[in-house]
């Protein structure tokens, strides 16, 4: 162990951190939107779309993320060129965001669907009998009750997403892991332990902070729990 080297290379990783954070942010944002759409399709049981959504979720959940990344990276340009769309100029970061959005969308919809179903039928009926429109019902009754149930699962999803960004260097994205593998290959097989320990600490910090953020949100939404709401 060479502590001096460890501190010398730490700034390299911190300068590469924004790329990882951008990937995490966009993947989480669009993944959440996609998962809401998929959950809607699943719950409403629409003719062709619902079996397709089931197929999509089963695929996303049963193949490794690394394989999905490679399939998108090599397969998506071929697939879209059939329709005359050229995406060969896309950056590797864009391909990784697409992969993570697709992965996260399937994963999070498996969190949202049970949370939606966990809101009691009586709540729907009460809102209906008070004459709420379906949008009002969703905004004022269902979503506030759904959030505290879904948040732990969504937080777990965020942690997994952060972990999943560690494989993006396989297609050549220069994020934290990419910098690490460049450092390892340029140091001729020495000091790998320091490099990966530094990576571990960077990831640990990111996960810790996001965990704290999710815990905070959980605290805020706690009062929407039916039993807690009656107390306050």
């Amino acid at each position: 162990m060479d502590i001096a080297y460890f501190f010398k290379i730490l700034p390299h990783f911190i300068s590469a951190l924004p790329i990882t954070l951008i990937v995490i942010f966009f993947s989480q944002l669009f993944g959440l939107l996609l998962s809401i759409a998929v959950t809607y399709i699943q719950i409403k049981s629409i003719k062709v779309l619902t079996p397709l959504a089931h197929l999509y979720i089963s695929f996303v959940r049963s193949t490794p993320i690394l394989l999905q990344l490679l399939l998108i990276y090599y397969g998506l340009p071929v697939l879209l060129s059939l329709f005359g769309i050229n995406i060969n100029f896309w950056s590797k970061t864009a391909f990784s965001i697409v992969t993570l959005v697709l992965h996260n969308g399937g994963f999070l919809s498996e969190v949202l669907r049970p949370a939606y179903l966990a809101v009691e039928q009586g709540q729907h009926e009460a809102a209906d009998s008070l004459g709420f429109t379906s949008f009002q019902k969703l905004r004022r009754i269902i979503i506030p009750q759904l959030l505290p149930i879904a948040l732990p699962g969504l937080g777990n999803g965020l942690i997994y997403l952060i972990h999943d960004t560690s494989i993006l260097f396989v297609i050549g994205v220069v994020d934290v892991m990419g910098v690490a593998s460049n450092l390892v290959s340029s140091s001729y097989g020495t000091d790998q332990i320091e490099v990966y320990l530094a990576v571990a600490f960077v990831y640990w910090a990111v996960t810790y902070l996001s965990d704290k953020g999710v815990k905070r949100l959980e605290k805020i939404t706690e009062r929407y729990h039916l039993e807690n709401g009656l107390k306050s």
Binding site: I159, D164, M177, Y196, L197, A200, Y203, W204, Y208
Partner: peptide
């Protein structure tokens, strides 16, 4: 537990790969 939950499996695998033989 916090370390194992906070770092990706891949990083842990690389750490083990370089540490364990030594």
């Amino acid at each position: 537990r916090s370390f194992l939950r906070g770092t990706p499996l891949l990083v842990q695998l690389y750490l083990a790969f370089y540490c364990l033989p030594v």
